[in-house]
Design a protein around this nucleic acid. Structure first.
Lengths: 202, 202, 202, 202
DNA sequence: AATGAATGAGAGTTCATTCAT
DNA sequence: TATGAATGAACTCTCATTCAT
């Protein structure tokens, strides 16, 4: 669950002090990228926040792209880990998706920078972007398939449904997690769960 | 329907020659931004493609941001106009959403640069980004409400449903429109329509 | 004879002003590289000397390496052009080599930066270095062969002799042209001519 | 004849372990400088090759320039020592020069990095460069004078001849030792010896 | 003696924007 | 309106050298 701290090229710090510095740089990077976006962010901004010299950055990362990549990976893992327990604990397939959305919105409210980081990767490092969403979609696909096998959901659930669910979650997270807190998370989650259960038809 | 061609500050070219140059710059910009993304795109790349001198760019636009903004607006309008007729012609609420998705995926297959432009605006000009999605969500909200009033859909449809639908569309467009053409548009649209009609429950 | 002024990629200036600027940058580069050597030379040093803005450099050259390359080529052509007339005018083969050396030392006394530029290319851009010396050696080889055909020189002159002659010239130029002016050029040239004529044997 | 291993400031290591480390660093430096040239070479490259920590370098040398200087000195001594015996054993003056060239080309074929090191010193540490060539020229001058006194060579041999001979050797070494092995060393040496004996005249 | 993290000056390069013609 | 040269701020990355352990 606790991701090993890794820099570029497996440059793993050999001393305790090194480990602390690396962690500090990563945290500072999350803030810098989150606040200013990839292109307006600067390495010197990161090291200033981290309280280390400019050059120290390059002791741990090969380039600006490299930290960003590490960060996308880090955030991607973090959401997954944050959402997983509640999903696993859910009594049935619909409840699992409801829990997934609820946890997700809750997470983005705590980490509003996540969109700035994961979504911007589409433009900075498309591979990371694709990897994140492809992996997430697969996870949802498996989840739906298992629920269908369980008899919780219709038998024909597919990748298309998974992408639909993921798309809903991402946009609802943006609207009700990042943009505005005006609507209760539970409320949103209930609404969606009901829609998933029986559709929009009358 | 056909937007007047406008540059920054509503600088509308007075001569025919000016109009041609402006159109050329805008088209070139769409290609340049689509291929390289906002930050890697360059004004000189745009003018080179347009076949005009670098300085001529500034006769029509105040800045790089300005063209980008104009382009986001342009693409936003284009999708809307491309999707609208089929939606209007649909016999009922579910069919309308089905048509919307179908048309949308069809559109992005023709204009794969749209994500590079509209989605990147989140990082370049957040106002344009918000405007595009807020406007789109409102349109869908109105559509759903009308269908509910018509008796086509459940009575409690809301903004939440609209964002859910929009999110689905955007991600399915990305997956089956931009990334891969491996699945028929009709197939995807049917699957989603069925899900919207009666949910995922058994 | 008069080399066309060329920048990188055939970026030929279109206006008269552009031509002046390019010439100014090249001249400044010769001074900067000559005084400080390739690595200690800086682009900003060049533009400062040329009296133009830093960025203007990149209007004409793609990189620091590129100017250097252009300069090596330029100097190489200059020596050749400076030496040629006297060589051509010489009455016989030995006299031609004598004239070549004399002119060469004279030239390096006027352009002491030439070693700093051509010889440093061995480390900066080996291709330019090789090209310069391979071309020069070929020229000497042809010269010797023609003189042999003429009956001026022994019949078996070869590439080996050409390289030997070139090496002598280069080192004598360094010693009596760049390092010290303590010995008359004619004196040196006479000594070498006599040695070439009849060797060191008694 | 075998130079004591010395670092900067005559810092001679006290322990056996220290001596091994120093030797390792010097050898690694020869390879690093030979392969990448002075400026592209890096201290970390040297220590990596030597298998010691970065900081250890500074236990033995004060700076990058210092190792380089030590190396130039080292190589200069090595050529001298490699060439000397055959020269001394030669029966007469021409034969001595022939032997010198032959040995020199042989040496550079084994140590192609020598040009990268000695010649680059012109740009890195001009004093070392001058010292090397001035010393070598003096040695040749003495050799020629002795041979003249012996009656082997013409009586008027001078410093000019010595520089001419040195220049030939250096360039023939570059051409037939470093660039290409296409011509036999003996062949080249014979050709030059014959030229030295009786010149190029008919 | 040895280690390896930390430092920070310095340089090359990019490119949006301005301006003289 | 069009042209293209000129500008210079800004940024990433390198690496010799220092220092605490």
């Amino acid at each position: 669950m606790n991701r090993a701290i890794t820099a570029s090229d497996g440059k793993a710090p050999r001393t305790e002090r090194g480990r602390r510095t690396l962690r500090g740089i990563l945290d500072a990077a999350a803030i810098e990228f989150g606040e200013r976006g990839f292109h307006d962010a600067s390495i010197s901004g990161i090291t200033r926040r981290a309280g280390v010299a400019l050059g120290s950055f390059y002791t741990y990362f090969d380039s600006k792209d490299a930290v960003f990549r590490a960060l996308v990976r880090d955030m991607s893992d973090q959401v997954r880990d944050h959402v997983a327990p509640a999903v696993r604990a859910a009594p049935d397939g619909i409840a699992a998706e409801r829990a997934g959305l609820e946890q997700f919105i809750g997470f983005v409210r705590q980490h509003k920078e996540i969109y700035r980081i994961i979504d911007e990767s589409e433009f900075v490092d498309p591979d990371s972007f694709r990897l994140h969403y492809a992996t997430t979609a697969e996870r949802i696909t498996r989840r739906l398939a298992a629920a269908a096998a369980q008899g919780d959901l219709r038998a024909d659930v597919s990748e298309v449904h998974a992408w639909a669910v993921m798309g809903m979650n991402v946009f609802l997270g943006l609207r009700y997690g990042v943009w505005d807190d005006d609507r209760g998370v539970e409320d949103v989650a209930d609404t969606v769960a009901e829609m998933l259960r029986s559709g929009l038809g009358r």
